[in-house]
Every structure is written in C-alpha cells, then in structure tokens.
Amino acid sequence: MKFSSQIKPISYLKAHAAEIVRELGEKREPLVITQNGEAKVVIQDIESYEQTQETMALLKILALGTRQIEEGKVQPAKDVIKRLRMRAGG
C-alpha cells in the first residue's frame, strides 16, 4: 500500500473532518496526518483498526508458541491426552 496519496497536513484534517471520516469508512485506507511537515499520526476506520488488533493478537500467540517450542516447553498431544484421561479416571 502506498501512503503517498494518503498524506495530509493537520490543517486539512481540521477543515475536512466529516469528509475524511466518511472516506476512511469507504476506502478503508489509513490517512497520515502531518504537523510542521513531519508525519505525526495515522488515522483509520474502526473496522480496519479492530482487524489490525486481532491480527496482532494472533501474531503474539504464534510468537509465544514458537518460543515455547524453541525452549522445549511442549509435550506431544498423545502424552497430554493420556494424562488427562488418567486424571478423569478413564
């Protein structure tokens, strides 16, 4: 995704807030806001934000699982199932 067309100064945000909110919902592309010529914030529609958060959570879970495998903190599923069945009396 190219952000070059989605960069606007803060004065544009102030003058076109309602239009920006509508376009963010339609296009689902983030908008970079600059202040004094420097990128300061990124705004995006709520659905995109929620999707990003869910993706980040899944990536964290994946990274944790990978680290546990590397550290040898995992056991074969058959061993775990056998132990659970023994606890349950079966």
Rank of each mutant, 00 (worst) to 15 (best):
residue 6 Q to P: 06
residue 7 I to L: 08
residue 7 I to K: 04
residue 9 P to C: 06
residue 9 P to D: 06
residue 9 P to H: 11
residue 9 P to T: 05
residue 11 S to E: 10
residue 11 S to K: 00
residue 12 Y to D: 09
residue 13 L to T: 01
residue 13 L to E: 00
residue 13 L to H: 07
residue 14 K to D: 04
residue 14 K to W: 06
residue 15 A to N: 03
residue 15 A to H: 01
residue 16 H to E: 11
residue 16 H to S: 01
residue 16 H to V: 05
residue 17 A to R: 11
residue 17 A to D: 02
residue 18 A to Q: 07
residue 19 E to C: 09
residue 20 I to H: 05
residue 21 V to M: 07
residue 21 V to L: 05
residue 22 R to T: 03
residue 23 E to V: 13
residue 24 L to A: 00
residue 25 G to V: 01
residue 25 G to A: 04
residue 25 G to K: 00
residue 25 G to D: 03
residue 26 E to S: 08
residue 26 E to G: 10
residue 28 R to A: 10
residue 28 R to T: 02
residue 29 E to G: 05
residue 29 E to A: 12
residue 30 P to H: 07
residue 30 P to I: 14
residue 31 L to R: 03
residue 31 L to P: 02
residue 31 L to F: 02
residue 31 L to N: 01
residue 32 V to W: 08
residue 32 V to C: 06
residue 33 I to L: 11
residue 33 I to M: 00
residue 34 T to Q: 10
residue 34 T to K: 05
residue 34 T to F: 10
residue 34 T to C: 09
residue 35 Q to S: 15
residue 36 N to M: 12
residue 36 N to Q: 11
residue 36 N to H: 06
residue 38 E to G: 04
residue 38 E to K: 14
residue 39 A to G: 07
residue 39 A to V: 07
residue 41 V to G: 06
residue 42 V to H: 01
residue 42 V to D: 00
residue 43 I to M: 14
residue 43 I to V: 13
residue 43 I to G: 03
residue 44 Q to T: 13
residue 44 Q to S: 13
residue 46 I to K: 15
residue 46 I to T: 09
residue 47 E to R: 14
residue 47 E to D: 07
residue 48 S to P: 08
residue 48 S to A: 08
residue 49 Y to R: 04
residue 51 Q to W: 15
residue 51 Q to E: 15
residue 51 Q to Y: 14
residue 51 Q to S: 15
residue 52 T to D: 12
residue 52 T to F: 08
residue 53 Q to H: 04
residue 55 T to K: 15
residue 55 T to H: 12
residue 56 M to T: 12
residue 56 M to G: 13
residue 56 M to A: 15
residue 57 A to L: 12
residue 57 A to M: 10
residue 57 A to E: 10
residue 58 L to E: 14
residue 59 L to A: 06
residue 59 L to Y: 14
residue 60 K to R: 10
residue 61 I to D: 14
residue 61 I to V: 15
residue 61 I to C: 10
residue 62 L to N: 11
residue 63 A to T: 13
residue 63 A to K: 07
residue 64 L to M: 08
residue 65 G to V: 05
residue 66 T to A: 14
residue 66 T to H: 09
residue 66 T to Y: 11
residue 67 R to N: 08
residue 67 R to F: 13
residue 68 Q to V: 04
residue 68 Q to I: 02
residue 69 I to E: 00
residue 69 I to G: 00
residue 69 I to T: 07
residue 69 I to L: 11
residue 72 G to F: 01
residue 73 K to T: 07
residue 74 V to C: 01
residue 74 V to R: 08
residue 74 V to W: 02
residue 75 Q to L: 07
residue 75 Q to V: 15
residue 76 P to F: 13
residue 76 P to N: 14
residue 76 P to G: 02
residue 77 A to Y: 12
residue 78 K to C: 02
residue 78 K to P: 03
residue 79 D to F: 03
residue 81 I to R: 06
residue 81 I to Q: 01
residue 81 I to Y: 03
